[in-house]
Structures are given as C-alpha cells and as structure tokens.
C-alpha cells in the first residue's frame, strides 16, 4: 500500500519551479552571447571583482554585521528579562514581540521614513528645543536603524525560546556551588543559550544582507547594497548575466553560512519559532 506516487505531481512542480529556475540562473551567469551563438564564460564573475562591486558586497556585509551586533546587544537582555521569573508568566509581552513580525515590513520601514524625514516628528522635536534640523534620512545609519527595527524580534524570540527551556536546577546547582550571578551567566546561562543566539544571528544577518527595500527607502539611491544592485541589473539595465552571477555568489554565501550555522543549531530543534 505504498502511496508515495501521490507526491509525483509535486515532483514535476518542484522541478519546474524550483530546480529549472536555479539552472537558469547558473546558465545565464556563465554564458555570453557572441555572433556565433552562446559560449561559456566566467566574465560575469570576473566583473564582480572590480573594486566598485567588491565595495558593494563589503558594504552589505558591513551594515548587516553592525545590524546583527546591535540586535544581539539589544535583544539578548530583552530575552533574558522576558524569560526571567517575574516576566515568565506574562505571555502578553511575547505576543507583543510577535506582532511586529507579522506586520508588513514595508509599512514598518515606511514608518521610519515618516519619522526621520526633514519635516518629520523627530526633526520637529529637535527644532522645538532650538537645535537646527538634521539630515536623518538617506545615510547608512538610517539603513541600519531600519534593519534593527525590522529584525530585532527575530533575535529576541529564538534566544527567548532557548532560555525558558534551561533547566532551573542547573542554575541553582551553580549557585549552591558558590558561583555569583556573573559567573552563573558566563559559565552556565550563556553557553546553554548559544543555539538560540546562533539561530537569532542567522535570522537577522541573512535578511539584512539581502535586503534592497530598506536600503532603497531609508538610504535613498546612494547606498547601494548587493540587493539593490541585483534589482537594478534585472529590472533597469537588463543585464541578466551579471545579475545572475551576483545571485549565485549571494546564494552560495547564504547557503554556506546556513550550513555552518545549522551545525550549531541542531540542539535547538523544536524551538517552534518560524
């Protein structure tokens, strides 16, 4: 009574809409048209190593890195507090943490656009206390702010879900053995929470590297991240070859770091957070 055949229609779908598109990316990324027809080339990948494009990648990684660090520094204490005894039963706080994740991220980004603009609330407040208006928008800190705002819950929730599962008796044992609260944190709580930290870092860093919306809306035109570059190549200049090569590079980067991360994440299975 094997009924594995019922999956076959999806096998067709999968090949058509998952496998073939990826093959297309690889195809366009490694081929150029000459008068004689198509030929294999690595020129698109070579082009990526021009300083201009390397800078774009470095900038994307740099901003995503800062965003991840800020999220970790801001988010870890939040998770700890939410998982602590006084707050543990306040499920409503976790619920409040989740809501922004379900809110359209364009609207969340747009909200900051309205706050930071020349005549926005923040500048109104600044001029109210007598200081000159500032250019808050369209620089890289606005982009980082937008990223942190969008991705902070993705850091808090995985760490929280690991922290509340830590066996309290381990902490008590450490305390009984004379560890002060700093040692308990350093030697017990933090190491045990690492799987959550790792998945939090993954969930923040990955979307931050590949975003093109936040950088476009809050960074204006001039802060080109790798996502913006890919978007322009496909939708404006129509350079599919180079765009595909960049996508391949990005994909390898992401899948590679996912593979590394997932080795640490194994213990975190059943965290239940999507």
């Amino acid at each position: 009574m094997k009924k594995s055949w019922v999956a076959y229609p999806y096998v067709v779908w999968m090949i058509m809409f998952i496998v073939v598109p990826l093959i297309l990316i690889i195809f366009y990324g490694t081929v150029r048209t000459t008068p004689q027809g198509m030929e294999f080339t690595l020129e698109h990948f070579k082009r990526f190593f021009e300083p201009l494009y390397i800078m774009v990648l470095v900038r994307s990684l740099y901003l995503a890195f800062i965003c991840t660090i800020v999220c970790l520094l801001l988010g870890y204490p939040v998770s700890m507090i939410l998982a602590s005894k006084e707050y543990r039963d306040k499920k409503i706080l976790i619920f409040l943490m989740v809501i922004p994740m379900w809110m359209n991220f364009l609207l969340r980004t747009y909200a900051w656009l309205t706050l930071l603009e020349k005549n926005g609330i923040i500048n109104t407040l600044i001029s109210f206390i007598g200081l000159p208006k500032m250019d808050l928008l369209y620089n890289q800190w606005a982009v980082v702010l937008g990223m942190v705002y969008n991705f902070l819950p993705f850091m808090v929730l995985p760490i929280y879900s690991v922290l509340i599962k830590i066996d309290k008796s381990i902490i008590e044992a450490a305390e009984d053995l004379g560890a002060n609260s700093r040692t308990v944190f350093r030697k017990v709580i933090f190491p045990l929470s690492l799987p959550g930290v790792v998945s939090g870092i993954t969930m923040v860093f990955m979307p931050a590297v590949t975003t093109f919306v936040i950088s476009r809306l809050l960074g204006g035109g001039q802060f080109l991240l790798i996502g913006n570059l890919i978007e322009e190549l496909f939708l404006k200049s129509g350079e599919w070859g180079f765009g595909s090569a960049l996508s391949i590079i990005m994909m390898i980067l992401i899948l590679f770091s996912m593979a590394i991360m997932s080795r640490y994440e194994k213990e975190n299975e059943g965290g239940g957070l999507l």
């Binding site: 496998v19 598109p21 595909s244």
Partner: peptide, 20 residues
C-alpha cells in the same frame, strides 16, 4: 529540494522565477 525556497534569499527566488 523543498527546503531551497525557504533557505534561498527571497530576491534569488524572485529573480529566478522571473527568468523562468
């Protein structure tokens, strides 16, 4: 293979489908 669209950056899924 089913995991690919989940793991892949959205922008890669988007442009690969567009190309298809």
């Amino acid at each position: 293979i089913s995991y690919l669209p989940i793991l892949n950056p959205d922008i890669v899924t988007g442009i690969s489908l567009m190309m298809l």
